[in-house]
């Protein structure tokens, strides 16, 4: 570990000024204008970074090779996901995976009661999320909740395919892979605006 300090040459002068200011009875300010630092970082090689590069970008960057069908996804869903997301994907306690966001729909008169019990059901992956790559990303890094990072890439493609199918964004016979996932157009994208000015959506 390199232990050299790279204080600027003027550090001694700065400290002298600080002492002088203190001696004059002034209160030293918070050090948030500190201009000195050190450099103890150790070089990181691409092979060391690689296992951690799990963020999947909307461009498809970092998507692994693999494939999974809606049908395979349905089976995986019943085994790993249904206990938290419900039989249909909108019963809670975990977030809604399908359908509209908001209070209720005419096809589901029980929704108001569900929201009273689990307010998080007001939001929905199917209607709000702008990119299918984010679904793949989140399942792969965080799901299932009791065993995150335990699914294979093919299994993650299959579950992503099933959630897209639940939202009528993919046909029942479909297979999703690292290329076809980029063809999915999510309804949440068209509705998106950014409060942060430095970005185009």
């Amino acid at each position: 570990m390199p232990s050299r300090f790279l204080y600027p040459r003027c550090l001694k002068f700065m400290l002298s000024c600080l002492l002088l200011v203190t001696a004059l009875g002034q209160v030293a300010a918070y050090a948030d204008d500190a201009t000195y630092t050190t450099d103890l970082g150790v070089a990181l090689s691409p092979s060391e970074v690689s296992p951690y590069e799990i963020t999947i970008f909307p461009s498809g960057k970092n998507l692994p090779e693999g494939k999974g069908s809606v049908k395979q996804g349905e089976g995986l869903y019943q085994n790993h996901c249904m206990m938290c997301h419900g039989e249909e994907g909108d019963e809670g306690p975990a977030a809604r995976l399908k359908g509209s966001d908001g209070w209720f729909s005419f096809s589901d008169p029980l929704r108001v009661l569900r929201i009273d019990k689990y307010p998080i059901l007001l939001i929905s992956v199917g209607s709000l999320w702008p990119y299918a790559t984010s679904i793949f990303d989140y399942i792969r890094r965080a799901m299932p909740h009791y065993a995150p990072k335990s699914l294979s890439n093919d299994e993650v493609y299959a579950l992503t395919a099933y959630i897209l199918y639940l939202n009528d964004l993919l046909a029942k016979e479909s297979v999703l892979n690292e290329e076809t996932i980029l063809d999915i157009s999510m309804p949440g994208k068209q509705r998106s605006v950014s409060a942060w000015p430095e970005i185009e959506l």
């Binding site: 970008f57 909307p58 709000l128 990119y131 984010s134 989140y138 998106s192 605006v193 950014s194 942060w196």
Partner: peptide, 25 residues
């Protein structure tokens, strides 16, 4: 560019009166 992670895709966005989804607030 941003990654549109789980929390910037859904839970931590705001739904505006006109139905638009406001992100990165």
């Amino acid at each position: 560019k941003p990654a549109f992670t789980k929390d910037e895709s859904g839970l931590y966005s705001d739904i505006l009166d006109d139905g638009k989804i406001q992100r990165f607030s």
